[in-house]
């Protein structure tokens, strides 16, 4: 199918599973922040689950269908309209040439995922179609959509047994996490402030990380005042020198020098994608299974 962008929305990018294999040379993993939503949207249009999707941020694009096909939306609850008529965006939407698809900003959540039926004809870099911004660089500029751009997909080989994916059930008010490598650096007062109590997302927050309204006390390390940089992951809760907890997301750098006090579960990382500045959530700590 073919879709032409009339407007781009706030920031609409191509995202997929990202580039997890290049962290040793400092390339952030990237990819869809809410991967459960990406997989679910793809399942609704019959795509392989890791097919790229459009990641919509707060304000969606306006699209004209130039050749027919199905699309489906998951993640944040954007209201979708076809030719100005409300449509049920929780199932596949069949579009024919000339249809106009538009979105209203979501009432809950922050990022929407639009799957488009077929094999995407887009550029990839290091095995992924995902946009990645480092400072002022767009490392895959064509993955950032602008007015007049055209997204084209070709019919893909039909999966004989389409994947059945249950709709995600976001619980972004409760984020589950395991203890991180430097959990013991948290003073008891910091544990009390960080865990099981509501904390808020504050600006600036973006695909690199979520900042929080926290001021946590840390124990000084037994070994040195400055930590040697070590690997970090999406979902790592770091505490900066001024005591602010930052939760890293997909576009974060690959190593860091701040204490890693918690590591969110894979499932909760998807939920973090839907938090906006001002939203509240609480962190709950799980025990590692015994091995």
């Amino acid at each position: 199918m073919r879709l032409r962008f009339v407007t781009s929305g706030l920031r609409t990018t191509t995202q997929d599973a990202g580039r997890p294999e290049y962290t040793h040379i400092g390339v952030p993993i990237g990819g869809a922040l809410d991967k459960a939503a990406m997989r679910y949207a793809n399942s609704l249009v019959g795509n392989a689950l890791q097919t790229p999707v459009l990641e919509l941020t707060m304000t969606g694009p306006r699209l004209i269908c130039e050749s027919a096909g199905k699309v489906a939306l998951a993640g944040a609850q954007f209201t979708a309209r076809v030719n100005n008529q409300l449509v049920d965006s929780r199932q596949a939407i069949a579009l024919t040439a000339g249809d106009e698809l538009s979105f209203e900003s979501p009432t809950t959540g922050y990022r929407g995922y639009l799957a488009v039926e077929g094999a995407w004809q887009v550029k990839t870099w290091l095995g992924s179609a995902s946009a990645l911004r480092i400072g002022s660089y767009e490392l895959l500029a064509s993955a950032v959509w602008r007015a007049k751009d055209v997204l084209e997909t070709r019919s893909a080989r039909v999966t004989p047994w389409p994947a059945i994916v249950l709709p995600p059930t976001p619980s972004n008010a409760i984020i589950r996490a395991y203890r991180g490598p430097e959990y013991d650096r948290l003073e008891p007062s910091a544990v009390a402030q960080l865990i099981e109590r509501p904390i808020s997302v504050v600006a600036p927050s973006n695909r690199i990380g979520l900042r929080t309204n926290t001021a946590l006390s840390l124990r000084h390390s037994a070994h040195a005042t400055e930590m040697v940089s070590s690997g970090v992951q999406p979902g790592t809760v770091q505490v900066t020198h001024d005591g602010q907890a930052i939760i890293l997301l997909a576009d974060a750098q690959t190593i860091g020098g701040y204490p890693r006090v918690l590591q969110c579960t894979s499932r909760s990382i998807d939920d973090l994608a839907q938090l906006r500045v001002g939203d509240q959530f609480s962190l709950t700590v799980l025990d590692y299974p015994t091995h």
């Binding site: 962290t23 040697v228 070590s230």
Partner: peptide
């Protein structure tokens, strides 16, 4: 890096540590 064991997705060495991530569909922590 030479062995590339089954299920290991990434290795991030940094000074005195290595972060290893894995795919739970192919392997397990143990």
């Amino acid at each position: 890096r030479a062995e590339d064991p089954q299920g290991i997705v990434s290795t991030t060495p940094s000074y005195d540590s290595i972060l290893v991530t894995f795919d739970t569909a192919k392997t397990s922590y143990s």
